[in-house]
Amino acid sequence: MAIVEATGIHKHFGALHVLKGVDLVVEEKQLVFVIGPSGSGKSTLLRCLNRLEEPSGGAIVVDGVDMLSPRTDINKARQRIGMVFQSFNLYPHMTALGNVTLALRKVLGLGRAEAEKRGQAALDRVHLADRAGHFPGQLSGGQQQRVAIARAIALEPRVMLFDEPTSALDPELVGGVLEAMRELRQDGMTMVVVSHEMAFARAAADRVVFMADGAVVESGTPDEVFGNPQHERTKAFIGQIGRH
């Protein structure tokens, strides 16, 4: 069953045509990796899926909900779509637990005790249960990003979006975040990941989508896209990445 069905997504920023009719289908429990050169529109596509960015045209259905319908309560719909950002975006004035429980209390309307129980459980899943009382400023970048993951999974979303989750991290901190993502995947979470972590993509992805210039160039299993790319642009991109 498809959890995410985006068809013909267009996005204009003024005169700039950033997405030119992109289709993306994500099946339940799949991990879809979106790769491509910078400026190819992959982050914009991701941000359109939960309408942080308003698409100029197309249709998006997530878990059976028409995201672009004016009748859809967007705040309710977003509960089912977790998002993790490149720059973490933790709330600096709240503890790790406070970051995780805010939406549980204010969006789901849980009581404090219940919210904190669920928040602790979410922190435990990213192995940060002992840092619940720390403020973001007291955590390393990798720990901050794992708190951000906990903040998203605490709402028990149907799908998780990762927007370059490791790009802002020092190399030695990347591993812990990828480990948390791998565990999520093992638990059966549906995930869409925009990232440059090619080794992780090969090892964990069910499908890889290569984008360039606002369009999907090709997609397939990691073996197909990395091992036997069909298009020149894909070959060039993968060749470049390989050299690094």
Binding site: N50, L52, N75, K76, A77, R78, Q79, I81, G82, M83, F85, S87, N89, L90, Y91, L102, A103, K106, V107, A148, R151, A152, L155
Partner: peptide, 20 residues
């Protein structure tokens, strides 16, 4: 990014203002 993170968890515009 603070507003985007808050909105992505389903907080409304006003809740985002108020808490974040």
């Amino acid at each position: 990014g603070q507003q985007e993170a808050a909105r992505s968890t389903g907080l409304t515009r006003w809740q985002t203002m108020q808490y974040i």
